[in-house]
Write a protein that binds this DNA or RNA. Structure first.
Lengths: 253, 253
DNA sequence: CCTGTTTATCGTCAGGAAGACGACTATGAT
DNA sequence: ATCATAGTCGTCTTCCTGACGATAAACAGG
C-alpha cells in the first residue's frame, strides 16, 4: 500500500465519553443535549472531534475536562482531588451511524466520584447526570423532572450500554470501584458503590471481610467518620493494588 | 458542532489484525513482511484501509479472509470449518504512529485453530506464523530460520502485546480457548492450548475435572481418538456456554 | 437516662472449588 | 512381556464464600 492520498477515503474521528458516577445510590451517566441537527434536542454522550495533532487519550481527557472539570487520573502525576479514571472503551464506525458523513468514534469510559458541586459545564440546562436505566430505557424514558431523556442520539445507547457493562465487569476483578469514591471513604460507602453499579444488595459483613482482607486494596488512614448515622466507620484510601485476586464475586440471579 | 468539513481534520482509518493460533505448543501470531517504506522489509501485523462504505468489523473480516482464508465466525450462521473468532481489540491513534500521515488503526483480535495447510496468503515469503515471544522479544529476535523478526513495524509490538494479553485473560473466564481447537478435540488438546497461551504447565487431572465439570463448556461427541500415543481420549466439541463460572484459574508465579 | 434504630465490625459454621497427588486404564513401542 | 505415554477417576486438605448470630458505637425520641 503505497502512499497515495486517493487510495483511502477520509474519515472524521471523534471521541465520545461515557462518564459514570454514583449518585443517590444510582449509577448515573453524563448526558448533554444536542443543540443542532441531527437529533436536535435529544440527549447524547459528550464528545467531540479529535484534533489533528492530538492523541486519542488526550482528546478524551480534554473533552472530559471541558464537560466536567475533571482531570484524568495520571498514575505518574500527583494525586488530584478532581481526578477520574479514564480508559478507552471501544470504537464505533458503522457507515451510517452519523447521517452527515463518515465518522469513526473512539468511545472512552470515565469513572468519577460524585461531584460535591455537580456543576458540569456552564449551561445547566444542556448537561445533566441521569440514571443509566433512564437513559437506556427501551420504552421512552423520563428524567426526574419529567423531561424525556431517551432514546439517546446516534448509537449512543449502545455505547453507553457497553460502557456500563465494562464498568460492571471491571469492578469484579479490579479495584476500580474506588474511582467512584472520594479520596477517603468508608467500607460502607464502597459497598454502596458496588450495590449501585451492580444493582444488587451485598451482605455488609462478608463485604467487609472481603475488602479488608484483600492485601493492597484498602489502606486505613486512621480517621473515623459518621456520615450516615450509626457507629463511626474507619476511613480508608485506595491501596496500590489494581487487580483483585480472588475477584469480588457478583451475585448471580 | 455544525456540519462543516473544514471544522475537523481528515484521518485515514485502518484495521490491523492480531491473528493468534497455537502451533507446536507455542502461541503464534500472523506477521507479514512490508514491501514498501516506511519500515520496508520489516515484519508487521496484517491490515489495511477501511473502505468508505464498510463497517469496522466487516473490514477486519475482509482482511482476515484475504490474509488467511479464514472466515469470521458468525454465531447466527452455519458452522464453518475455517471459522475464527474475531473481536475488536483497541484503537491506536498516536499522531506520529505513521510518519506518512495521520492514521487511526482499529486493531482486531482473531483466534484461529492451527491450519491444516498453513498457507496463509499466496506469497510464502511475505507471510508467516511466528511465536509471539520472538515477535515481542525486547532484544532483536530471530525466527526459526534465523531471519530477523523484530522489532515489528509501527506500534505493532504494542498492539500485539495488547492482543496477547487480551487472549490470555479472556480464556480465563470464557470458553474462547476452544477457538484455538478444531471442531472436535480432546481434553488434552484443550489443555495444551491453555498451556501454550499462558506459558505454564497445568495438572491434567485437575484440568480434566474442571472442564468436564463445567456445564455447557464441552459436549462429548461419542468418538475417541489417539493422536499423541497413549490411551485414546474422548472427543468433544465446544458447548453453547460462552462464560465460565467459576473461571479457569491462571496459576500465578 | 433509657430504649430503639442505624451502621459498623467481629465471629462461627457449612458447602463448594481448587491444588496436590495416588491409582488405574488403554493404547503404541521395544 | 515390559515400558512409556496419555487419559480418567478418586481422595484429601485448604481456602473462600455465603448465611447469619452477636457485639459496638453513634443518634433520636421519650
Amino acid at each position: 500500500m503505497p502512499y497515495d492520498p486517493s487510495a483511502f477515503p477520509p474519515f472524521a474521528v471523534t471521541v465520545d465519553l461515557v462518564v459514570l458516577t454514583v449518585r443517590r445510590h444510582a449509577l448515573c451517566a453524563l448526558a448533554v443535549r444536542r443543540g443542532e441537527p441531527p437529533y436536535q434536542g435529544r440527549w447524547a454522550l459528550p464528545g467531540g472531534f479529535v484534533r489533528g495533532d492530538e492523541d486519542l487519550t488526550t482528546a478524551a481527557a480534554r473533552e472530559l475536562a471541558e464537560e466536567t472539570g475533571l482531570h484524568a487520573h495520571d498514575p505518574a502525576g500527583p494525586v488530584l482531588a478532581n481526578a477520574a479514571h479514564l480508559e478507552q472503551l471501544a470504537t464505533y464506525g458503522d457507515p451510517k451511524r452519523d447521517p452527515r458523513m463518515r465518522v469513526v468514534s473512539v468511545a472512552h469510559l470515565a469513572l468519577a466520584p460524585d461531584l460535591p458541586a455537580p456543576r458540569p459545564g456552564g449551561d445547566a440546562r444542556s448537561v445533566r447526570w441521569a440514571p443509566v436505566e433512564d437513559l437506556l430505557d427501551q420504552e421512552v424514558g423520563y428524567g426526574r423532572d419529567g423531561e424525556q431523556v431517551t432514546p439517546l442520539a446516534f448509537d449512543h445507547a449502545q455505547i453507553l450500554a457497553d460502557g456500563v457493562e465494562r464498568a460492571r465487569s471491571k469492578i469484579e476483578y479490579s479495584s476500580l470501584a474506588t474511582a467512584f469514591c472520594p479520596q477517603e471513604f468508608t467500607v460502607g460507602e464502597l459497598r454502596r458503590v458496588y450495590e449501585a453499579v451492580w444493582g444488587v444488595a451485598l451482605d455488609p459483613r462478608n463485604f467487609h471481610r472481603k475488602v479488608t482482607g484483600t492485601p493492597g486494596f484498602l489502606v486505613p488512614t486512621g480517621g473515623t467518620t459518621t456520615r450516615q448515622g450509626g457507629r463511626p466507620a474507619q476511613l480508608f484510601r485506595a491501596g496500590g493494588a489494581t487487580l483483585l485476586n480472588p475477584p469480588m464475586l457478583r451475585p448471580e440471579a
